[in-house]
């Protein structure tokens, strides 16, 4: 094992230990403690937006701007890929 890999492994282990502790400190699986925002959405989604699908109401209405950003990301990626594979000579 080279010097660099040993150095890497030490810090890797430190980071992993802290992250694993954090996963044990989470709320118990399946019993979230605070639920106010999502409860409000579930209760109002059908009346306010008229959708039967709660996820769609969040995607397109409550957090519609995120969806615009997501569509923009796809657009950006397509533009980027086309630009990377363009022919260089004009």
């Amino acid at each position: 094992m080279s010097k660099r890999n040993l150095f890497a492994l030490i810090f890797f282990v430190i980071m992993a230990v802290f992250l694993f502790i954090s996963s044990l400190m989470m709320h118990p699986f399946g019993n979230p403690e605070k639920t106010n925002m999502d409860d409000e959405i579930i209760e109002n989604a059908q009346i306010e937006t008229g959708t039967n699908n709660g996820v769609t109401s969040v995607v397109f209405d409550y957090r519609g701007f995120d969806t615009l950003g997501e569509a923009t990301i796809l657009f950006t990626a397509v533009a980027g890929v086309i630009m990377i594979f363009r022919r260089m000579n004009k």
Binding site: R63, F65, D66, G69, E70, T72, I73, T76, A77, A79, G80, V81, M83, I84, R86, M88
Partner: peptide
């Protein structure tokens, strides 16, 4: 917060494509 993340991704993808604008140079890619 999540909106911040989405815009961060837009920024980084667009800047990445723009950095590789001169694709005939290997170092740019």
């Amino acid at each position: 917060m999540f909106n911040f993340f989405v815009f961060l991704e837009i920024t980084s993808i667009a800047s990445c494509a723009l950095i590789a604008f001169w694709t005939n140079k290997g170092k740019a890619v």
